[in-house]
């Protein structure tokens, strides 16, 4: 028997609400908004309340997919990154960097988002960068 509550931060938007994920025998079973968090004081929106449902959802992608002949097929990271890099280079070379756009995510950390925009701006050379938490 192992029941723990893990304090973490919501990944849905930039507010930074805190909650506990209830873990029972290795399975995430519930979300408990943290009452002592100065950000959300024990309150959450509907997305936050349901975070535990996506964490171990079987529909969640665990491997990169590449579309080949109209079908999404599992690929390893090496292949997926090579494919993405060569396509980005090809498009930027042909139509210019502003023909590309980058969408960042609240599910990344602050630092990862920083690197991502740096990659878009300094690496590729476009200011076309936005974020899913533009609610």
């Amino acid at each position: 028997m192992n029941y723990t509550t893990a304090l973490t931060t919501c990944t849905y938007c930039g507010c930074g609400c805190n909650f506990y994920l209830e873990v029972l025998d290795g399975k995430v079973i519930g979300t408990i908004p943290c009452k002592t968090s100065p950000t959300n004081e024990g309150k959450l929106c509907i997305k936050g309340w349901n975070v535990h449902e996506f964490v171990q959802n079987p529909k969640r992608l665990t491997k990169p997919l590449i579309r080949k002949n109209g079908q999404l097929l599992e690929a390893d990271w090496e292949e997926a990154l090579d494919f993405t890099a060569s396509k980005l280079k090809e498009i930027a070379g042909k139509d210019g960097p502003d023909s590309l756009a980058f969408l960042a995510s609240a599910k990344l950390s602050n630092e990862e988002n920083y690197i991502y925009q740096k990659f878009a701006r300094a690496g590729v050379g476009t200011n076309n960068i936005d974020h899913c938490a533009r609610l």
Binding site: M1, Y3, T4, T5, L7, N18, Y20, E22, I32, C34, K35, T36, S37
Partner: peptide, 12 residues
Amino acid sequence: EKNGHIAPHLFT
């Protein structure tokens, strides 16, 4: 009381 917060906990 843990991590500077008050959390539900199963004491064993």
